[in-house]
């Protein structure tokens, strides 16, 4: 309990620092906010007036507090480029990203853990070799390249799946797998090595000496002990998925948070860029927090009784 409370406080602190960092990064990243809204022929006075209007001439720490104050009171503002309501963008794109992200996250573990167990149980056979080759491949291939390859093969050559768009299940398949692949590859490795380590550990030998069947030893005890390191990496996987979503959503034309953010940055639509950066950072931080809590609960050494 104490550990969980501590981690939660720590997470809030990280969230605060991250929000400051994101805010400064976006404000200081150069580029002219007025370019997003004003026509190219706008005069210097027009631009200055526009900056004044947006409060961009205030000291930056003051801007931060003004911004966060509005954010926390529920006023998310509007886009500079098309005046759309940021809250509406959040719900629409957030939903799409949630579908894609949760699918990819589920795939990472639903595919990665069983494959890792399989490789461990069949260690040093061709099955193990095949799984590990897949895993090494999955880690080595850059996801943008994989995305393009998948589109070329499955959409152009074989015509099996739509090349882009949202949000039918058929359209989900390619982006979800591309997003998940590296996570799957890493989870396979992690699961396999944790299983192998536990299979040869002293405590498992004690269970065997107690006459438990090998199936029981593996499926209950080895697996359970192996979950601890796997869970501890769930937070990292979330961060990875969020990061890769920027690329994958853009390539597959999946209108999610990542795509919004990339477009906003390209158009210097700073309220949108700022807000969605914060959202993605918050997801990553919250994901790590959740994984950490899960880790504490799974590990008796950390679970205070």
């Amino acid at each position: 309990m104490k550990r969980i409370a501590g981690r939660t406080l720590y997470t809030l602190l990280v969230l605060f620092l991250a929000s400051v960092a994101v805010f400064y990064a976006i404000r200081l990243s150069g580029g002219d906010a007025t370019a997003a809204r004003l026509v190219a022929s706008a005069t210097a006075e027009d631009r200055e007036a526009f900056r004044e209007l947006l409060g961009l001439n205030e000291p930056i720490h003051q801007q931060y507090f003004t911004y966060m104050g509005r954010l926390l009171s529920g006023d998310l503002g509007v886009s500079l480029t098309n005046s759309s309501d940021i809250f509406k963008m959040l719900t629409f794109h957030g939903r799409n990203s949630l579908i894609l992200g949760v699918t990819a996250f589920t795939l990472v573990f639903a595919v990665g853990i069983p494959l890792g167990i399989l490789a461990a149980r069949k260690r040093n056979t061709w099955v193990d070799g095949a799984v590990m080759t897949f895993s090494i491949g999955g880690m080595a291939v850059p996801n943008f390249w994989l995305a393009l390859l998948a589109i070329w093969l499955f959409a152009s050559v074989w015509g099996l799946l739509p090349s882009a768009g949202c949000c039918s299940p058929r359209q989900l398949i390619m982006p979800a797998f591309v997003l998940a692949l590296e996570g799957i590859a890493l989870t396979v490795r992690m699961t396999r090595s944790a299983m192998l380590e536990n299979l040869e550990s002293d405590h498992v030998r004690t269970l065997r000496a107690g006459g438990l069947s090998e199936a029981r030893v593996v499926n209950k005890h080895v697996l359970r002990a192996s979950f601890i390191p796997i869970i501890s990496l769930m937070g990292l996987r979330i961060g990875q998925i969020v990061g890769y979503a920027l690329v994958v959503e853009t390539i597959f034309g999946w209108p999610g948070l990542g795509q919004v953010l990339v477009n906003a940055v390209l158009r210097r639509d700073y309220p949108v860029a700022q807000f969605f950066s914060l959202v993605l950072v918050a997801i990553v931080v919250a994901g790590n927090w959740a994984a950490d809590i899960g880790y504490s609960l799974a590990n008796p050494r950390l679970r205070k009784t």
Binding site: D202, T206, L207, G211, H221
Partner: peptide
């Protein structure tokens, strides 16, 4: 076994492992 520090299952309680051994037989 030789090393009591590593020879017990770290994620299950003493009672649950012992009952499992008993019930296996």
């Amino acid at each position: 076994f030789q090393d009591p520090l590593t020879s017990l299952d770290p994620v299950f309680s003493v009672g649950s492992v012992m009952t499992e051994v008993i019930k296996a037989h």
